[in-house]
């Protein structure tokens, strides 16, 4: 598969995520669209690590672990996303308990 196919797929999924963040008002769905964007970036990182691995193999066939770092970064992105989701959902539950809604328009009155 040419690398541009993976770029296009990741860009399409990322743009769908951006559109979802802009159009929806339910804060949980906005949160899910952020996860969608993170996954698009992860897919692109894995594709680039694969591409880098193959190019380095052509240059230096002894270097069989080139490109491992990209996949490790994806692993750390997943770790950070899991931590972010737990705290974010706790904040959404707290907001729902106070105002009985998850509409993001209530968030602009956060200071009162």
């Amino acid at each position: 598969m040419p690398i541009s196919y993976y770029i296009f797929l990741a860009v399409i999924i990322f743009s769908i995520g951006v559109t979802g963040v802009l159009t929806r008002r339910n804060s949980i769905i906005v949160f899910m669209c952020i996860e969608l964007m993170l996954n698009a970036v992860n897919l692109l990182l894995v594709a680039f690590s694969k591409m880098h691995h193959q190019r380095m193999l052509v240059l230096d066939s002894a270097n069989i672990t080139a490109g491992t770092e990209g996949q490790l970064f994806v692993f750390f992105i997943m770790v950070v996303a899991a931590a972010e989701v737990s705290v974010g959902l706790a904040i959404i539950v707290l907001m729902y308990r106070n105002v009985h809604s998850v509409d993001i328009n209530f968030l602009n009155r956060l200071k009162n």
């Binding site: 598969m1 040419p2 690398i3 541009s4 993976y6 770029i7 296009f8 860009v11 399409i12 990322f14 743009s15 769908i16 951006v18 559109t19 802009l22 159009t23 594709a47 690590s49 694969k50 591409m51 691995h53 193959q54 190019r55 069989i64 672990t65 080139a66 490109g67 491992t68 996949q71």
Partner: peptide
């Protein structure tokens, strides 16, 4: 706005070199 973002990113990142490929099912990394 989301569609425009997609179009701009695709136009900017379009690599004309089809030789850059990821061969599926290979590699141990």
């Amino acid at each position: 706005a989301g569609g425009m973002l997609m179009i701009v990113l695709i136009a900017a990142l379009d690599t004309p070199d089809p030789a850059i490929i990821t061969k599926p099912g290979t590699g141990e990394i």
